[in-house]
Design a protein around this nucleic acid. Structure first.
Lengths: 338, 338
DNA sequence: TTCGCTATTGAAATGGATTTCATAGCTTCA
DNA sequence: TGAAGCTATGAAATCCATTTCAATAGCGAA
C-alpha cells in the first residue's frame, strides 16, 4: 500500500539516493555540481536521476536556501485603466530584462496580482516570493519607491535618476536627450518650438528641461509647453488639435515618446501639416514602429537590451549586499527624414 | 545567542502562534480564512501577525500544498534572433493573460530561461515550478506541444485549433477572419488579390484558406500568394517591393498581421500606391497603432482580454482534472477608411 | 443527568531539499 | 612512524507551513 502510493508519486531525492546507493547529501552535491563528489559517483547519480525522470523540487530548494532566485518585475500592464498608453517601449524593456535574467538563470515573476501599496511589496519580499524587484517606470509610484528604499528592499528602477531618491535608478540621460532634440531644431533654424508631455513625470520634466536649455541658446526661439495629463493616445491627439485650433503654428515639436509623436502627426495632418516639411518632429524611445511609421519618426534612442542588463546587474549587486549607484545611460539621436 | 539570532530573523508561524497564545494550525487556519476558527482568536492572530510584519513563507506553503499556484507563460521574446517580428499583439495577449491570472491570484512565471526541449517543460512541471503552461503562439513549436500533450502536461495554447493536436488550443477563427477580408474585397469589387504571410504557420494558412474560399465566389478574382518565410518587418517590406517590381499591381492585399500591413504600406508607397484608394488593405489583430497609422488600417480584431481570460480558464479546468475542448473565438472586421 | 452532536483546538506527521558537523580513508611531510 | 591535512561521504538538523487525526468543550435533546 505504502509501496504502491510511493510508486505513483514523483521520485524524491531520497529515492534517487537509495537507487544510486549513496546518501541524500551526495545526490544533492552531485546535482548542484559540487566538486566534493567523485566523478564515478556523480556519473552514476546523474544517470539514475535521468532514468527516473527526477527533477529537484524547486519549492523545497527555495525553502531551504537563502535566495529564491526569483525577481519580481513590475510594470503598469493595466495602465489603460488609468488612461495611460500601453507603450510598446515598456515591453521592449521587459524583453531586455527577461533576457538578462535568463542568462543568470533567475526566474521572472511578472507583476504579481495587486501590488499596490508599500505593504504589498514588503509582504512579497518577506514571504520570500522574490529576492527583489525590478520596476519599469516610476510613473506616479515615486513615494512608494522611496519608502521601499528606506526599508532596504532590494530593487532597481527604470526611470529618472534623482539624487535624493534613495534607490538605485537606471535611466537614459533625459536631459541630454532633450538637448539633442533642441540642438537639432537649432540646426534646422526652427524658431517656434513646442514640447508635448506631462512634466509631472520626472523623466519627462528632464527632457523638457534639456530642450529648454537649448532654446535659450538662441534669442529668436520661442518654446511652448503643451502639457498633457494622461498619456493616452487619444488625449494627446485632441490636445494637439486644440493647440493648432488656438492659432499656434509651431515649426518644431518634441514629444515625450514615439507613440505621442504618432498622435501629434495624426492631429497635425488634419491641418495639412506634415513633418519634416511643415515642422520638425522628434520623438523618444525609438520603438520599432517609429522607423516604419509614415512619415518615419526622428527620435532619441534608448537601448532596451543594455537597459535590461544593467537593471539586472544592479539588482544582483544589491542582493550581494552592495549599494550600487544609479546609472544614466547615454542617448543618441536617430535622424529619419523620409 | 539563539535568542539573538531568532530576533534578527523573520518571524515564523510558530512565533506568531506563541505570541498569540494559540497553536500553529490555528494560525494557519486563521490566515487562510478557514471557518474553523473562532472570531476572537482570528482577530487576535491577525493583529499579532500584522504587528510583527509576518508574511507566510510562500515556499514552505508551495512545498506542502499540491498546487503551486504558479503558471508559466511562454512567448518568443527573443524571436528577433530568429528573425521574427516583435509584434505588439503578443504583448497585448500577455497583458490579457496577466490580468486574468491576477484575478485568480495565481503567479505568472514569465518564459523561464532555456525552455526549449520537451524535457525542459517536463522538468519545470516536475520540479513544481509551475502547475501548467500558457503558451502564446504555436510558432514552430508544434511538435513539442503535441508531445507535451501526450505526456499530460497541463497547458493552454494560443494559436490555431487543430483537431488532431491533442492539446487545448484557444484562437481566433482564422478561417472566418480570412473570409471576412475576402468578402470585403468582393464588396469593393477588387479583382486582383494577394495574401501576404507564411502559410507554414497553421494560423496563417487558415487565414489564407478563408480568403481563398471567398475568392472562388467570383470567377473574375485572381488570388496571389506572397509567401514570406521569416516574419521580420524588413523582409516583408522587401518581398512586397520585389513583388511590385515584378510588374504585379494588386488592388487588394490581405496581410497576416497589422505589422505586416505596415510593411506593405511602406513598400507600396514607394510606387505611389496608397490605400484605400489605390488598393484595399486588410490586416489582422487590431493592435492599437493600427488605428493611428497613416493611413489607418482596416483589420480583423482579436480581443486579447477575452483571449487571456479563456486561456487561463481552460488551464485551470485542466488542473482540476478536466479535459477542456479547444475554443475558437469569433472574429470581427474593423473598417477604417481615412 | 446523560447521550450525541457540533464547533474549536492542538500534537504530530508530512512535504523535499540543503547544510552543518563528524568521520573514515588517504596522502604528505618531517 | 606519527602528526597533520585532504577528500569524500553520511547522519542528523533545519527551513516553514499544511493537514490529518484525536481530543475537548459546549449545548440541546431525551
Amino acid at each position: 500500500m505504502a509501496e504502491k502510493r510511493r510508486r505513483a508519486m514523483r521520485p524524491t531525492m531520497d529515492d534517487i539516493a537509495r537507487l544510486a546507493q549513496v546518501s541524500k547529501p551526495t545526490v544533492s552535491r552531485a546535482l548542484s555540481g559540487s566538486r566534493l563528489v567523485s566523478e564515478d559517483k556523480r556519473a552514476r547519480i546523474l544517470e539514475v536521476a535521468r532514468e527516473h525522470g527526477y527533477a529537484v523540487n524547486r519549492n523545497a530548494q527555495k525553502l531551504r536556501q537563502v535566495r529564491t532566485n526569483t525577481v519580481a518585475v513590475v510594470l503598469d500592464f493595466h495602465s489603460h485603466r488609468h488612461g495611460a498608453i500601453g507603450d510598446p517601449f515598456i515591453y521592449e524593456l521587459l524583453a531586455g530584462v527577461s533576457e538578462a535574467l535568463s542568462v543568470r538563470d533567475v526566474d521572472l515573476l511578472l507583476s504579481p496580482a495587486g501590488l499596490e501599496s508599500v505593504g504589498d511589496y514588503v509582504d512579497l519580499h518577506r514571504s520570500r516570493g522574490a529576492d527583489g524587484f525590478i520596476i519599469l517606470g516610476q510613473g506616479m509610484r515615486e513615494p512608494i519607491l522611496r519608502e521601499l528604499a528606506r526599508k532596504d528592499i532590494p530593487m532597481a528602477v527604470w526611470g529618472a535618476v534623482m539624487a535624493e531618491s534613495g534607490y538605485c535608478a537606471v535611466g537614459s540621460d533625459n536631459f541630454a536627450g532633450g538637448r539633442l532634440a533642441g540642438e537639432r531644431f537649432l540646426q534646422l533654424h526652427r524658431k517656434s518650438w513646442v514640447f508635448v508631455g506631462n512634466i509631472a513625470h520626472e523623466e519627462i520634466r528632464l527632457r523638457y528641461a534639456g530642450l529648454a536649455e537649448a532654446a535659450r541658446e538662441s534669442t529668436e526661439v520661442e518654446l511652448d509647453l503643451l502639457r498633457i495629463d494622461m498619456m493616452a493616445f487619444s488625449e494627446t491627439m485632441s490636445k494637439a488639435r486644440e493647440y493648432l485650433q488656438s492659432g499656434k503654428r509651431p515649426d518644431a515639436v518634441f514629444a515625450f515618446s514615439d507613440t505621442a509623436s504618432m498622435a501629434v502627426i495624426s492631429a497635425f495632418r488634419q491641418e495639412r501639416l506634415i513633418p519634416p516639411h511643415d515642422y520638425s518632429l522628434v520623438g523618444y524611445n525609438n520603438i520599432p514602429p517609429a522607423a516604419h511609421f509614415s512619415p518615419s519618426i526622428t527620435t532619441i534612442e534608448q537601448d532596451t537590451s543594455i537597459a535590461g542588463t544593467i537593471l539586472v546587474e544592479k539588482l544582483m549587486q544589491q542582493l550581494d549586499g552592495a549599494r550600487p549607484k544609479s546609472v544614466t545611460l547615454p542617448t543618441k539621436l536617430i535622424v529619419r527624414e523620409t
